[in-house]
Design a protein around this nucleic acid. Structure first.
Lengths: 240, 240
DNA sequence: ATTATCTATAGATCTATAGATAATGC
DNA sequence: ATTATCTATAGATCTATAGATAATGC
């Protein structure tokens, strides 16, 4: 503790960011002190200020770092053929990705950054919204084109009722349901007691969204199999 | 300014709460100083502490004050007969109430407290969620019973496809769409550019929700007339 | 020789209180 | 006599910097 390993500038920067991210996410910009960050990173406050000119800069750098979209899915998406099936799977996937994030054991444990991102997004919406705007622009643009194609394909296949709601808006509404669910589950004790398990809520959200899109009942029955998708997910990401 | 009117304890308390609410809403608990509150209320910090033992207490009292549900609608709701029509109107109304709140001119202008409530709810979700839980419990319990009745009536009338999603959950999903829309429009520049006007977004959200509920196309066409409801709203609440 | 790191501290706030003063109501 | 209000300030933080020291790499 009093003998911190000496790191290269780059590594130290990263270690400070890694220490600061959970603190900012859980306590907000104003609720986090440079002292806390330094302590968590195992360094002095002075060193923090050698790497970042100010607390604001550190915060901005963290946000910038998170905006570098994971284009990991980008190529997978391109390979998917536009169809009802792809649409259904995508809706399920979208809701899962946003709503499924497991709670980190202790605040600050090395979990995937999604929990932190959701908190920072909400914080951003309470401020000028700049981070949220940039983040969504970077990430969502990858999807919309394929989604629109899926809607058209689904209508053409007779699986979906043609309707006046813009395909992109339907996508956003689905996203928004998942986002609110996530926000409500941010506190240790969820802010709403729905009376259903996490899996049930998720499944019902997907069904609501599928109907919201205008999918016909027969198509839902044919293409949406929650249990199967659950297994699919577990195979991909490991059991929850 | 330097000659503040002398108020009764009760009136002064209220004036402090009125001054503090917008500040807390816009800058958060940590982002608001007792000095700012005192200045806005036109009093000294010392007086603030005569009325509230601490900043935390003031904040808690504000939240408590906001949780006293406006039971204004409570009686109206009781009179509504469960029907497809009532369901459609309620969905429209729910989304309007949450999403429609106009932006206050300057932060702190005496607007209706809804804008502030939304911000405080979001802040609460980033903390322990206690305020959000209490607020929703107080307000939403009024609705659910009637809503379930509407869903059953609608199914019975042949307007809605019976489906496995819990009626209450369908209500929450609708609420959640509106809440996310509101959150995204909290910043002066909305965090998402949907490419539609406010009215268009709202109308599409209602249609998405109606379909999400399982309403049949014929029933939607028969009962949902956005333009008419808009006029209805304006007659009730004045033109926006 | 350069780079990473620390200790110590200045200067600015921020919450909260002590103690004094002015206005009201009986 | 009571109640509302103020000025002044203590004590605790909090951000950021100055200046010194220890480790690395050529």
């Amino acid at each position: 503790m009093s003998k911190p390993t000496r790191l290269s500038a780059e590594k130290r920067r990263e270690s400070i960011i890694a220490a600061a991210l959970p603190l900012f996410a859980y306590h907000g910009f104003n609720g986090t002190t440079t002292k806390q960050i330094a302590e968590k990173a195992g360094i002095s406050e002075a060193l923090l200020y050698r790497h970042f000119p100010s607390k604001e800069h550190l915060f901005a750098d963290i946000q910038g770092y998170l905006c570098q979209a994971t284009h990991r899915f980008s190529e997978i998406i391109k390979t998917l053929e536009p169809s009802t099936s792809t649409l259904v799977n995508s809706i399920h996937f979208l809701i899962s990705v946003i709503f499924d994030e497991e709670h980190p054991g202790e605040p600050g444990s090395p979990t995937d950054p999604h929990v932190y991102i959701c908190r920072l997004l909400a914080q951003s919406l309470l401020e000028d919204g700049h981070f949220a705007r940039t983040f969504w622009q970077a990430h969502i643009d990858l999807w919309t084109e394929k989604w629109e194609a899926c809607v058209h394909a689904s209508v053409a296949a007779g699986d979906m009722i043609e309707n006046e709601v813009s395909p992109v808006m339907r996508f956003w509404f689905t996203h928004h349901i998942a986002m609110s669910l996530r926000l409500i589950h941010l506190p240790e004790k969820p802010a709403v007691d729905y009376g259903f398990t996490h899996a049930e809520i998720q499944q019902q959200a997907v069904l609501f969204a599928l109907r919201g899109f205008g999918l016909k009942e027969a198509a839902i029955k044919a293409h949406y199999n929650a249990a199967m998708l659950q297994m699919f997910n577990e195979a991909l990401f490991g059991p929850s």
